[in-house]
Design a protein around this nucleic acid. Structure first.
Length: 724
RNA sequence: GCGCCCUUAGCUCAGUGGUAGAGCGUUUGCUCGACACGCAAAAGGCCGUAGGUUCAAUCCCUACAGGGCGCACCA
């Protein structure tokens, strides 16, 4: 054996060998007699990485944990399937490519045109995909590449169109003129979950619209007041009771407003003046008030976050400037009563950083509150029961059909559902699934194919990327066709993903799957934490603190990279990345290698394994039994999702119990002067315990364990398919 | 505002109703049959603070402080 494990070359070789043997593919395993035809299935999807660039240590940690699960279950003899794929990540990818093109050619997407631009995005996505694939492979992930999917490939596109059409025909997808989160920077709508609320200091202005209006109001956005149609007060507020129902025609800085005073419970009498100027077009709350009181929607701000008020002085002004203009005017006219600094949250689009402008727009939505009759299903709801999508999402988790771990995230999940509004699924970007709806005059059709007749025009918008991700557990298995894969592997066993996408993805998959299949997408959701840098910051491109796992793999090997991101982080907890840690686990893999070398060098002459096995003495048998107890412990930890404990246990056993104690105390018995029988028994004992150790370490550090298995000829196949 | 999590050795973190563990780091020895990416030892902790429950609390309960996160329509 070489003095060191040459991971730089050997890891690649070993991975190729696994792949060539076809062990990542469950059917091949059945064919080769590795797995029984009727074995229990274990299935899981890889959360598809975005094709926006390269993977970072967070992905590496995810791959490590998921591969532990996969390899462990495969070694248990289960029909094991782990599906790879990538996500087109519509907005993220498009804006990335837009930036690149602008940097290179100073052109924007409109300069290129839709077709040419999409060509560029596809090219980028393809390159990005290839990088990602090689990174995933370098990590040793035992994914079934024959089933690789992309959220935007033909099969998945068909699934998306099919899904859209069905939901549309069932009346759960509707097109409506409603107030949405508009991102003026990205020039698109975004969903509620793609909006970050950032605390900032704002100014609360307290004033009257005009001298002849009786009520004083307060707002942080006086420029929107040109769009006011009402003043809302709490119905129980004695100060304003007399005004409720009255209408006023007033002049607000040169614009005529028709203000009706309405009573509404959302108004907090304690805040400000207890009276709210209602701007239905530019505030979610106000839009709802307007719906309740049948008020007009008057838009005064446009898609570029500029004032749109024909003939008025503020027309074309940026909202920020208009705000100051209005404040100034109010002051001049003596209408401004108070101006105070307050803390307030502003909404920003998480992808572009653009300040969200709530605007009324004609968009596509999924109705989460609409009642419908559920058909035959496997989620324990009587067929014919009236349900809503919200119900379904809640039901499967409440009834524990879907288990969420760590449990604390359940609360987060329920809370999200309780506050959930209709999901806006249309985006004004080009990259993504084009909305499968065609128009001709007043006619509207959702179709999976382009209509053959002339005159139909397809909707220009694309779908929220999470619409296609939501179908992932079953679209990757061939849905809407009724495939064998679906029958065998769905619902999937586990979904392992980061806790930051519980709403985006986990909840949407539950929604889609319960609706389309009447089934759960997965039995267990296991959420891991975020990998942070030494200062505890999230890894991000803007901070330039991301670590490319390939660098770590090159320096210390994939095994070390894997183990370092598993040990030291409990379920759901964030993990701090440190190169020092990776290094120390590299030392561990060297340790394993050296133990193997020791065994190779000290093999008794004329050693016959089977014979030695039969002639093991009682004491050695005892020792082997003890080692098997450790394996049970490791199994238990893995099954309870305590991977960090399982890894540590196995690590500690090999290094301390085995190498430092057992091996040391057995050295004397391996002496040539020793009785040959005892020598063989001692050697067999060590060999066997070592074999058990590398088996339990294999899911964590597959390469070095596979290599020493081969070097010592511990079996006649490959370690990855040995039985646990 | 509501909710959640964290606070244990210098650092990063495990852990348990019976006064604590790992890795790294530090110190001291070591060319002892594979391994200096190593071996053998050692130092180092009123387990955030204050109460309570208990025969017994670092672990359970309550409050507080500091740190982090999620959600939210406070105009």
């Amino acid at each position: 054996m070489d003095k060191r494990f040459d991971y730089q070359n050997k890891e690649k070789e070993i991975y190729n060998l696994w792949e060539e043997e076809g062990y990542f593919n469950p059917e091949k395993c059945v064919e080769k007699g590795v797995t029984k035809e009727d074995a229990e299935p274990f299935s899981m999807v890889l959360p598809p990485p975005n094709v926006t660039g390269v993977l970072h240590m967070g992905h590496a940690a995810m791959l490590a944990i998921e591969d532990v699960m996969t390899r462990y279950n495969r070694m248990q003899g289960k029909k094991t399937l782990w599906i790879p794929g990538t996500d087109h990540a519509a907005i993220a990818t498009q804006s990335k490519v837009e930036k690149l093109i602008y940097k290179k050619e100073k052109k924007n997407r409109h300069d290129l045109g839709r077709e040419k631009f999409l060509e560029e995005v596809n090219k980028f996505a393809k390159e990005s995909h290839d990088t990602i694939e090689s990174q995933i492979k370098a990590m040793g992930a035992s994914l079934d590449w024959s089933r690789e999917a992309f959220t935007l490939d033909d099969k998945r596109s068909y699934a998306v169109k099919h899904a859209f059409k069905k939901m549309y025909e069932d009346g759960l997808i509707y097109r409506g003129n409603r107030i949405v989160n508009w991102d003026p920077k990205g020039q698109t709508t975004v969903s509620d979950d793609e909006v970050d609320h950032i605390e900032t200091e704002g100014v609360l202005y307290t004033f009257k619209y005009s001298k002849d209006f009786p009520i004083t109001i307060a707002t942080t956005r006086p420029e929107t007041k040109f769009g006011d149609v009402a003043v809302a007060v709490n119905p129980d507020d004695k100060r304003y009771k007399e005004y409720i129902g009255k209408e006023y025609k007033i002049d607000f800085l040169g614009k005529e407003l028709n203000i009706k005073v309405v009573g509404d419970d959302v108004v907090d009498p304690e805040f400000g003046t207890g009276a709210v100027g209602v701007t239905p077009a530019h505030s979610f709350t106000d839009f709802e008030i307007a719906e309740r009181h049948n008020l007009e929607v008057v838009q005064v701000i446009n898609e570029y976050a500029k004032m749109e008020l024909e003939g008025h002085e503020v027309d074309g002004m940026k909202t920020k400037d208009a705000r100051l203009w209005v404040a100034e005017k109010l002051k001049e006219l003596g209408l401004l009563k108070k101006q105070e600094k307050i803390k307030q949250n502003i909404s920003k689009a998480e992808r572009t950083g653009g300040v969200i402008e709530p605007l009324p727009k004609l968009q596509w939505f999924i109705d989460v509150n609409k009642e419908f009759e559920i058909g035959e299903n496997k989620i324990n709801i009587k067929s014919g029961t009236k349900v809503t999508l919200k119900h379904l999402m809640k039901h499967v988790v409440e009834s524990n059909q879907v288990e969420i771990l760590p449990e604390r995230f359940k609360k987060v999940y329920f809370h999200w559902i309780d506050n959930l509004r209709d999901w806006c699924i249309s985006r004004q970007i080009w990259y993504g699934h084009r909305i499968p709806v065609w128009y001709k005059g007043d006619e509207v059709h959702a179709e999976t194919d382009t209509p053959s007749e002339d005159g139909w025009e397809q909707d220009k918008d694309t779908l929220d990327t999470w619409f296609s991700s939501g179908l992932w557990t079953f679209s990757t298995l061939g849905w809407p066709e009724e495939t064998e894969d679906l029958k065998t592997y769905h619902p999937t066993t586990i979904l392992e993903t980061g806790h930051e996408i519980i709403f985006f993805w986990v909840a949407r998959m539950i929604l889609m799957t319960t609706y389309f299949l009447g089934e759960i997408p997965f039995k267990t959701v296991y959420l891991h934490g975020i990998v942070r840098d030494k200062q505890g910051r999230k890894m991000s491109k803007s901070l330039d603190n991301s670590v490319n796992p390939l660098d770590m793999i090159k320096k210390y090997g994939a095994d070390a990279t894997r183990l370092s991101s598993i040990i030291g982080a409990g379920p759901g907890n964030d993990i701090v990345f440190s190169e020092q840690k990776v290094k120390s686990y590299r030392n561990f893999s060297t340790k394993i290698w050296n133990v193997a070398r020791f065994l190779e060098m000290n093999k008794p002459e004329n050693y016959n394994r089977a014979e030695a096995e039969n002639n093991l003495n009682e004491k050695d048998k005892e020792k082997i039994k003890k080692a098997e107890k450790i394996k049970e412990k490791v199994s238990k930890h893995i099954e309870e999702f305590n991977f960090h404990l399982a890894g540590e246990e196995a690590y500690d056993f090999l290094w301390n119990d085995f190498a430092n104690n057992l091996l040391e105390e057995t050295k004397l018995r391996l002496d040539d002067k020793n009785d040959i029988e005892d020598k063989r028994s001692a050697y067999r004992m060590l060999e066997k315990i070592f074999f058990e150790s590398i088996k339990m370490l294999h899911p964590f550090i597959p390469f070095v364990t596979e290599a020493v298995y081969d070097e010592l000829n511990l079996g006649d196949k490959m370690l990855m398919i040995e039985r646990w």
